[in-house]
């Protein structure tokens, strides 16, 4: 266990050796900050404009999903591809660690970075929720926010593990990022492109099953937690982590 912690610690600090981490955090905070300011305007607007749920505008925006599409591949592209191309994987895999420990350590380090990235957005919440600190009551129903963060936490795990699996297959970081981006696009594209479909039609229902932005628009953003989506995120994440372990194992036989 402590050995795994050592590896998590190294993997996590490795993010801060490279400029990518800072760029990712900066762009992410810029976009969410901008959307936050828009939300404020909308929440306080009079008349027919405005939004009814606090996080709705942030997670419904195309810009947000574009950023969200790019971030996980950038965070995971290094994980195995770089170690393979520089040969350090040989050092890592001949240390007394099991393959699943290596994979879990890398995943947790990368997930910790993802969580770190989201932490500053908690500062917006008192304003978005109309929080009165002297009564500790919220003017707006907080469950929509809790549901949104839950959705983001699990969807993030899905995209990160997908990126990690791709990274374990290739040698080049760029290719790892591009392939992961392409695979993530399957889950996101309908949220950016927004086809004009009848919401009760079969096409929409199929699309809705795996399109993450639609889940946030219809469910999480409105405080609805639908287990079908949680199951999708968790099962894709677990499957990808499992395949990553397998891909490491298979490399020993080649």
């Amino acid at each position: 266990m402590r050995a795994t912690l050592s590896l998590i610690h190294r993997e996590f600090s490795a993010y801060f050796y490279s400029p990518i981490a800072y760029v990712v955090i900066a762009v992410f905070l810029l976009v969410t900050g901008y959307l936050f300011s828009l939300s404020l305007l909308q929440l306080t607007a009079l008349g027919p404009k405005g939004i009814s749920y606090p996080m709705q505008l942030i997670v419904n925006d195309v810009a947000f999903w574009l950023v969200f599409l790019f971030i996980p591949p950038l965070l995971t592209m290094r994980s195995f591809a770089e170690e393979r191309s520089t040969g350090t994987l040989e050092m890592l895999l001949t240390a007394p660690l099991r393959d699943w420990q290596v994979v879990m350590a890398k995943f947790l380090a990368c997930y910790a970075f993802y969580v770190l990235m989201w932490l500053p957005t908690l500062l917006y919440l008192p304003v978005l929720l109309d929080w009165e600190w002297w009564t500790t009551r919220c003017g707006i129903d907080p469950w929509t926010v809790v549901a949104t963060y839950l959705g983001l936490a699990l969807a993030g795990a899905m995209f990160l593990s997908l990126g990690m699996f791709v990274s374990s297959l290739v040698r080049s970081q760029i290719i790892a990022a591009l392939v992961a981006l392409f695979l993530s696009l399957i889950f996101i594209v309908a949220g950016i492109w927004r086809p004009d479909l009848d919401a009760s039609g079969l096409a929409y229902r199929i699309l809705f099953y795996f399109t993450v932005p639609l889940h946030f628009e219809r469910n999480f953003g409105r405080g609805v937690v639908d287990t079908r989506q949680l199951v999708l995120y968790i099962s894709v994440a677990v499957l990808c982590l499992f395949l990553t372990i397998r891909s490491l194992e298979s490399r020993r036989w080649r």
């Binding site: 050995a3 912690l5 050592s6 590896l7 610690h9 190294r10 240390a95 007394p96």
Partner: peptide
């Protein structure tokens, strides 16, 4: 330090 950690030295 890192290598010692994953080799179980603390």
């Amino acid at each position: 330090h890192f290598r010692a950690g994953i080799k179980g030295l603390y």
